[in-house]
């Protein structure tokens, strides 16, 4: 049996809102040692989502036997919208479940609401992602990256990211013209999350589809910072930290064959 209680429903709500537009169906793997893990790939096979909600993200977590919950995220999202952000949220499943029980408890009122979501058998193929060495890594405020991704999409369907020791440059060239945004590393002592950190083994220039970057920044509400790891001619990793765990996106770049 699985029983996981979140202190606040908002965490799972935000996670599902971050991924449901990229992947519609996915398997939630549940185990006592790993909590909940998900790997899912979008239909175009360009964007991969790797989610880990550790047991530490829950107020209470027990999972007697490893379980796979096949979920339609659109349906789960509908059910999660029934609860308030501050409610306790408990998800419950039997050992061979055909449904997931979702329970909201209002902390102030004596109100408990229960929903049952039908589970599905989902055939998903899983990719092997080795721990990669990266040419460079940037950590920056998540909202700032989101603004750049959204703004630059209005200029071009591609966004070029150029990293050097001294700066990260976002470059867009489109029909109406072009634009670039240059950020330099700095440390904000009072608000560390406002800092921009660049770690560099070697400079990188990579181009990504603006559409996918705009899917990724839907996770902005989850974390104050985003870490972007880039390697020449390889998929990029965008990581949003959860209180205990992470939401990672792997995005294939564009380049000439």
């Amino acid at each position: 049996m699985l029983e996981g209680k979140f202190e606040e429903a908002s965490l799972l709500k935000k996670v599902i809102e971050s991924i449901k537009d990229s992947v519609k169906l996915c398997n939630f793997n549940c185990s006592q040692s790993k909590g909940i893990t998900v790997q899912a790939i979008d239909d175009s096979r360009v964007l991969l989502i790797a989610l880990k909600i550790d047991s530490g993200s829950f107020q209470e977590f027990r999972c007697d036997r490893d379980l796979v919950l096949g979920l339609d995220l659109e349906s789960l999202s509908k059910i999660l919208k029934q609860g308030n952000n501050e409610d306790y949220l408990t998800i419950i499943a039997e050992d061979s479940p055909d449904s997931l029980l979702v329970v909201f408890e209002d902390k102030k009122k004596d109100r408990i609401s229960e929903f049952s979501l039908k589970l599905m058998d989902i055939d998903s193929d899983v990719l092997t992602i080795d721990d990669m060495e990266h040419d460079c890594s940037i950590t920056m405020p998540a909202y700032e990256f989101a603004k750049i991704a959204r703004d630059m999409k209005t200029l071009s369907e591609s966004l070029q990211i150029i990293i050097t020791k001294d700066s990260v440059k976002f470059n867009a060239e489109g029909q109406i013209g072009s634009g670039s945004i240059i950020l330099k590393p700095h440390t904000d002592m009072e608000k560390p999350d406002e800092s921009i950190k660049i770690e560099l083994n070697q400079p990188v220039v990579l181009t990504f589809g603006a559409k996918y970057l705009n899917d990724i920044v839907k996770a902005t509400a989850l974390s104050s910072t985003v870490t972007i790891k880039l390697t020449d001619k390889a998929p990029a990793l965008f990581e949003y930290r959860l209180p205990s765990g992470y939401l990672r996106y792997y995005l294939a770049p564009k380049f000439d064959d």
Partner: peptide, 14 residues
Amino acid sequence: TQKQQTLSRFFGSQ
């Protein structure tokens, strides 16, 4: 114009 790559090119299936 550059070509959009897919992840299958970089990661193996399990």
